[in-house]
Simulated scan of single mutants.
Amino acid sequence: MTLLIRNFGQSDSEHVDALALRAFAQFKNAYDDWPAFQAKIAHVSLLADGGEMIVAELEGNIAGAVAYIGPGKPKAAFFRPEWPIMRMLVVDPADRGLGIGRALVDECLRRAMRDGATAFALHTSEIMEVALPMYQRMGFQRIASAPPIHGVAYGVYLKELHG
Rank of each mutant, 00 (worst) to 15 (best):
residue 5 I to M: 01
residue 7 N to S: 14
residue 8 F to L: 00
residue 8 F to I: 00
residue 10 Q to L: 13
residue 10 Q to P: 15
residue 11 S to T: 14
residue 11 S to D: 14
residue 12 D to G: 05
residue 13 S to T: 12
residue 13 S to E: 14
residue 15 H to T: 12
residue 16 V to Q: 08
residue 16 V to G: 03
residue 16 V to M: 06
residue 16 V to W: 01
residue 17 D to S: 08
residue 18 A to W: 00
residue 18 A to C: 01
residue 21 L to K: 07
residue 21 L to G: 00
residue 21 L to V: 15
residue 23 A to D: 07
residue 24 F to S: 00
residue 25 A to S: 13
residue 25 A to W: 01
residue 26 Q to C: 13
residue 26 Q to L: 14
residue 27 F to P: 02
residue 28 K to S: 15
residue 28 K to Q: 15
residue 30 A to M: 13
residue 33 D to W: 02
residue 33 D to T: 11
residue 34 W to L: 04
residue 39 A to Y: 02
residue 39 A to N: 06
residue 40 K to P: 00
residue 40 K to L: 09
residue 41 I to S: 05
residue 42 A to E: 06
residue 43 H to D: 14
residue 44 V to M: 09
residue 45 S to M: 06
residue 45 S to C: 08
residue 47 L to E: 13
residue 47 L to K: 05
residue 48 A to R: 08
residue 49 D to M: 05
residue 50 G to Y: 01
residue 50 G to F: 01
residue 51 G to I: 02
residue 51 G to M: 03
residue 52 E to N: 11
residue 53 M to G: 04
residue 53 M to F: 09
residue 59 E to A: 07
residue 59 E to N: 15
residue 60 G to R: 04
residue 61 N to T: 13
residue 62 I to Q: 09
residue 62 I to S: 10
residue 62 I to Y: 02
residue 63 A to H: 09
residue 64 G to M: 09
residue 65 A to G: 11
residue 66 V to N: 09
residue 67 A to N: 10
residue 67 A to C: 14
residue 67 A to S: 12
residue 68 Y to P: 09
residue 68 Y to C: 10
residue 68 Y to Q: 06
residue 68 Y to A: 06
residue 70 G to F: 09
residue 72 G to L: 03
residue 72 G to T: 01
residue 73 K to R: 08
residue 73 K to G: 00
residue 76 A to P: 01
residue 77 A to S: 12
residue 78 F to S: 02
residue 79 F to T: 07
residue 79 F to E: 06
residue 80 R to L: 12
residue 81 P to E: 11
residue 81 P to Y: 00
residue 81 P to C: 01
residue 83 W to Q: 15
residue 84 P to I: 09
residue 84 P to S: 11
residue 84 P to E: 09
residue 85 I to K: 03
residue 87 R to I: 02
residue 87 R to Q: 08
residue 87 R to P: 00
residue 87 R to V: 03
residue 88 M to W: 07
residue 89 L to N: 04
residue 89 L to A: 11
residue 90 V to R: 05
residue 91 V to A: 08
residue 91 V to F: 11
residue 91 V to M: 10
residue 92 D to K: 04
residue 93 P to H: 05
residue 93 P to N: 10
residue 94 A to S: 13
residue 95 D to G: 00
residue 95 D to N: 10
residue 96 R to D: 03
residue 96 R to G: 04
residue 96 R to V: 12
residue 97 G to C: 06
residue 98 L to E: 10
residue 99 G to L: 06
residue 99 G to H: 07
residue 99 G to A: 13
residue 100 I to Y: 10
residue 101 G to R: 12
residue 103 A to K: 10
residue 103 A to S: 15
residue 105 V to I: 15
residue 106 D to K: 09
residue 107 E to Q: 15
residue 107 E to W: 01
residue 108 C to Q: 08
residue 108 C to Y: 07
residue 109 L to G: 02
residue 109 L to K: 13
residue 110 R to K: 15
residue 110 R to D: 13
residue 111 R to W: 04
residue 111 R to A: 06
residue 111 R to H: 06
residue 112 A to R: 02
residue 112 A to Y: 03
residue 114 R to K: 12
residue 114 R to N: 10
residue 114 R to V: 12
residue 114 R to Q: 11
residue 116 G to Y: 02
